[in-house]
């Protein structure tokens, strides 16, 4: 118990911030990836039949990218 308390005392706040920022970017990155997976494959499917859907497909595919941008913003705010 004593050791743990001592460890808390010596934990660098900057390190914790860095971990928080890392989690914010990392987890949101994964989340965008998962969200984009299905949209991307659907966009490719639609494009394979009709090339004019490229623009729409691209836009829809990158919409979940906002999640990771929010993560990035949070990370920048933290650090």
């Amino acid at each position: 118990m004593v050791d743990a308390a001592a460890a808390v005392v010596y934990m660098d706040p900057a390190g914790l911030k860095a971990i928080g920022a890392g989690l914010a970017v990392g987890l949101t990155g994964l989340a965008s990836g998962i969200a984009e997976r299905d949209i991307g494959s659907a966009a490719i499917g639609a494009m394979a039949e009709n090339e004019s859907l490229f623009g729409k497909g691209l836009i829809l595919t990158v919409i979940p990218e906002t999640i990771v941008i929010f993560g990035l913003v949070v990370a920048l705010l933290i650090s």
Binding site: D38, I44, A46, E49, L53
Partner: peptide, 16 residues
């Protein structure tokens, strides 16, 4: 199963 891909493609095919 790759539902997203197939259903999107099939819908595009249906529009033809």
């Amino acid at each position: 199963s790759n539902y997203a891909y197939v259903t999107a493609r099939v819908r595009a095919m249906k529009s033809n």
